[in-house]
Computed example of a mutant assay.
Amino acid sequence: MPESAEEVRARLRARIAAIEAGNGVPDGPEVDRCYGGASSQEGERPTRVGVVSRSASSVRVKGNVRGSAECDALDEGDASCSVDVAEEAERAFRKIERLAAMREQASTLLRTRLVREGFSADAVEQALVRALACGLVDDVRYAEVLVRSRVSQGCGAQGIAAELDGLGIDIACVPGWPDEFPVEHDDEVARALALLERKPPRAKNRRDAAYRRLAQKGFGASVASTAARLWSESLEE
């Protein structure tokens, strides 16, 4: 029987608690980045898959918004800034946890959603660094799921790659790509033809309409042109 959402969240929390207690080692980045250790604040952060960069945007302090420079200017004894951001980051992390329990998540989409829901940029970045380090969020894992889903829907390789690129993910990171996917020219032409058979375009100029539909589905110009020609010729015959 599949796990319920509550059971999945409970299992995730138990795993995270075990990591914090030193009883488990997560896959991926070092553990202390997950829990606010020194490496979560320092070091290079590539802009591609699986890593988030810290923003210099504003942080919330006692209900107001202050810039990072103003926060740095606070007296050393006033720790309200870091405390408030830490509390907000914890709430953001719990939100990520709930979303990840339902389906794979992309870090870019999570960042946009959390900021839209009112979390400060600093809190979101802290929560994402922690989620990525724990393996709760994994852009490579998300990319693999998306690629397999899009291929099964009949989408073309060019469009799939463009969709991932829009999320800051290189399709080359997907395990088995492209060897284990039907993305060779002949395979793509066959999938394009199957798509046209399932959903034939309704237009006077069928060949042009077929080409446009395939282009919209992410097939490259060569594949779309070949498939549109073969499909229109089969109708004439």
Rank of each mutant, 00 (worst) to 15 (best):
M1E: 10
E3S: 09
E3Q: 12
S4G: 12
S4F: 03
A14E: 08
A17S: 11
E20C: 12
E20D: 10
A21Y: 00
A21E: 00
N23A: 13
G24F: 14
V25I: 15
D27M: 11
D27L: 14
P29H: 08
E30G: 10
R33N: 03
R33E: 07
C34T: 03
C34L: 10
Y35E: 01
Y35S: 09
Y35F: 15
A38W: 11
A38L: 14
A38Y: 11
A38N: 07
S39I: 03
E42V: 15
E42L: 15
G43H: 09
E44H: 14
E44W: 14
R45H: 04
P46H: 05
P46D: 03
R48P: 00
R48L: 09
G50S: 05
V52G: 08
V52A: 08
R54H: 05
R54K: 11
S55C: 01
S58G: 05
V61L: 14
G63E: 02
G63N: 04
G63R: 05
N64M: 08
N64A: 08
V65D: 09
V65Q: 11
S68Y: 01
A73Y: 00
A73F: 02
A73G: 08
L74I: 07
D75Y: 02
D75V: 01
E76H: 11
A79R: 12
C81S: 09
C81P: 01
D84Q: 03
D84N: 06
V85I: 06
A89R: 04
A92L: 03
F93W: 02
R94D: 13
K95H: 13
K95D: 12
E97P: 09
A100V: 11
R103M: 07
A106Y: 05
S107R: 10
T108P: 03
L109W: 00
L109V: 10
L114T: 06
E117I: 10
G118V: 06
A121R: 07
Q126V: 03
A127C: 04
A127S: 08
V129P: 04
R130L: 04
A133N: 04
C134Q: 14
C134H: 13
G135M: 05
G135E: 05
L136G: 11
D139W: 00
D139T: 09
D139G: 07
D139I: 03
A143Q: 07
E144Q: 14
E144L: 10
R150F: 02
C155A: 13
G156C: 05
I160A: 00
A161M: 09
E163M: 13
L164V: 06
G166W: 08
G168F: 07
G168K: 07
I171M: 06
V174R: 00
P175G: 06
G176D: 09
G176L: 12
E180C: 13
E180V: 10
F181S: 03
P182W: 10
V183R: 01
V183Y: 03
E184T: 14
H185S: 10
H185T: 11
D186E: 12
D186P: 03
D187S: 11
D187L: 11
D187G: 13
E188G: 06
V189Y: 04
V189W: 02
L196Q: 01
E197V: 13
E197T: 15
K199V: 06
P200R: 01
P200V: 02
P201I: 07
R202T: 15
A203H: 13
A209Q: 05
R212A: 14
R212Q: 14
Q216S: 11
A224I: 00
T226G: 00
A227K: 04
A228W: 00
S232E: 12
E233R: 15
L235T: 14
E237F: 12
